[in-house]
Design a protein around this nucleic acid. Structure first.
Lengths: 362, 362
DNA sequence: GCCGACTTAGTAAGCGCTTTCTACCCGGGG
DNA sequence: CCCCGGGTAGAAAGCGCTTACTAAGTCGGC
């Protein structure tokens, strides 16, 4: 059917082994021979059979990238960054390809731990060279255990595993842990809360993400720490509402928060998308931002600066993190000390936060 | 090293052939035997070797998805939709898997035709079951020809090719064309322009996308048609600026447009992201939207409704288109008549457009 | 002028799975 | 009682590539 190595070999008057060696450049081949082979490859429009080489070499050119939802820029940006590290260079590459180009298999888990496991198995089946898991992990002991097992099997099967944007695996296990690139969600949330507190806010509502997610928990913890330091621990507890990481739950959550505490002067949203929903709800209630209520997001996705009003948020270096994870996955970069690299998030103060009206009167 | 079919066969006391048949369910196997095999699979934690089966069966479980930039929600949404059609079902799937789950290989071309070809070759190498090309195509005759060749080769190699969000291949070629799911960019742009015209605007600037892109051209054509119908053809020509599909070029483009025509009362941006840049520039110039200048986007990405102000735009059914493309790619859906399905975009009138101040005075 | 050391190329044995072809077991009709 | 056909399972030949291992030249040194 299609052109095979043998065809190329015949055409170039050499053995299949030689063609393979020319193509992989992992064995000395005389210049003249190489050229003859390369010409035959051109003439026959030969394209390597990936599965065949993966089988023979016991490794593939595929890298799995697990994301909650690729349509969400948060994940899209990280996935894109991973991809650009492992794929063809952005620059018009010359003829030499120092490292074999890898292809990224993007898997949407939709936040379901079950699908996460399913995809991990599918990636193991593909003999993926590496797997990058992005986003917060579900915190359910049975799932955590199942996940750890799967990851161990993947590594045993030769895949490199890298966590990106999620905390390292529980330290309880023996053996080396997957390399991890993580964000300081706790610190970011704490700084955001402190920012609001320092503006004079005292009644702050917190719209947390879905329960049982590490990201949700860490951000919430950071918030609570700051609240407790200001002697507002009880309020923090009372004014926390959980919801999905989407606009709709921001809208609903804001309404719920207002119901619980009509005197609210600030709302911290789980992330930028949720914050957008909060803003919409507030506007619909006839409240001005930040005049009546200050709002904060998290992540600093590209649209945050163009929101109405421009969102005060925490910038997460998603691109850098994804790129780092990609390099780690290919072993192009040395592991960070302890196997964990943490990126902190910078507070971006914009127009959605201001001193509360009551305290502003001085 | 790892567990193989043979190991499972030995454990179950059957031949490898039988195990293969049980796993693929494409051959009658007695119930008792099947159960024994399945148990052995469980006990051994056997995971099929994908490359091996791909080699033997001459087809893989991989579907390539080419996008300009996965971090851009426009592409993220389509890619996600494709993915959800070919991957594990969102529902907690039962044991039966009617169709083998496919994995999506997402390839960021960055809009480079060269990388597009590179990826196509890499996908052919993987023996991808299907390839979905999204987004506008580069209109360069040599690239178009090269692309057509590559696609033909892919199809010859057994991959199904589907175009999504780009026009069908030139009709000149013989043989069946790749199935296509496309958007009525022309009509959308025309309606957008007519909307502005009907509000009373006469000095409209158009911020087009990068030249030599089908999407850019179609949207521009739609705009020109409406402008010409209003006797404004010359202005349309003079007030068109090309730029990338990003926020920065929206910003710069708006400034350039204002320089060319200070009396501008409306700017049509190539897409929502560009529109955001336009809004930012206008604000920085002290102009109000839509008071001084009306602005429109295109695509209706999720953030459009939360922009400052909410963007009047054209909604493209990205999810539906992606899903359709995914189904077409797997042959799960019959080809549309003529092989081309066109989705139209609906005008979403929001707060960024209003009658121009001067004509509003009546 | 002969023998290692070094290059370069070929041989061939798989890699783990699919699938055709063959073998076998049974039950029922002639 | 024999033969035939439906239902199951096994044997074995690849699928196209990688990679020891082996072979054949080529040199330079003693």
């Amino acid at each position: 059917m299609s052109v095979t190595l043998a065809d190329v070999a015949a055409r170039a008057g050499v053995s299949a082994a030689t063609v393979s060696r020319v193509l992989n450049g992992n064995y000395p081949v005389a210049g003249a021979t190489r050229h003859r082979v390369l010409r035959a490859v051109e003439e026959l429009e030969y394209v390597v059979n990936g599965p065949a080489s993966a089988l023979a070499a016991a490794t593939s050119d595929l890298v799995g990238v697990l994301v909650n939802d690729i349509a969400d820029p948060f994940f899209g940006i990280m996935a894109g960054a991973v991809q650009s590290e492992i794929g063809p260079p952005a620059q018009t590459g010359g003829g030499a390809r120092p490292v074999p180009l890898k292809l990224a298999i993007v898997c949407n888990t939709g936040g379901s731990s079950e699908r996460e496991l399913t995809y991990l198995t599918l990636l193991q089946r593909q003999r993926a060279a590496a797997v990058v898991l992005t986003g917060g992990a579900v915190e359910d002991s049975s799932h955590t255990a199942a996940l750890a097992t799967r990851l161990r099997r993947l590594e045993a099967a030769g895949s490199r595993v890298v966590l990106c944007g999620r905390p390292p695996l529980a330290a309880g296990e023996e053996g080396p842990h997957p390399l991890t690139v993580t964000f300081d969600n706790r610190g970011g949330a704490r700084r955001l809360t402190e920012h609001l507190l320092s503006l004079g806010h005292r009644r702050l509502g917190y719209l947390a993400g879905p329960a049982n997610r590490t990201t949700t928990r860490h951000r919430l913890e950071g918030h609570r720490v700051a609240m407790a330091a200001a002697g507002l621990a009880d309020d923090a507890e009372r004014l926390t509402v959980h919801g999905a990481y989407d606009r709709a739950s921001g809208y609903d959550g804001a309404l719920e928060l207002l119901r619980r505490e009509p005197g609210l002067t600030a709302i911290l949203a789980a992330n930028d998308t949720v914050a957008l929903g909060v803003c919409a709800a507030l506007r619909d209630q006839g409240l001005s931002i930040p005049g009546d209520v200050s709002v904060t997001g998290f992540d600093d996705l590209p649209f945050a600066v163009d929101a109405m009003p421009a969102l005060t948020t925490v910038r997460l270096p998603l691109t850098e993190a994804g790129a780092r994870a990609g390099r780690l996955a290919l072993g192009r970069e040395d592991a960070p000390p302890g196997g964990v690299a943490t990126f902190r998030g910078d507070l971006m103060v914009r127009d959605s936060t201001a001193p509360p009206r009551t305290s502003g009167g001085a």
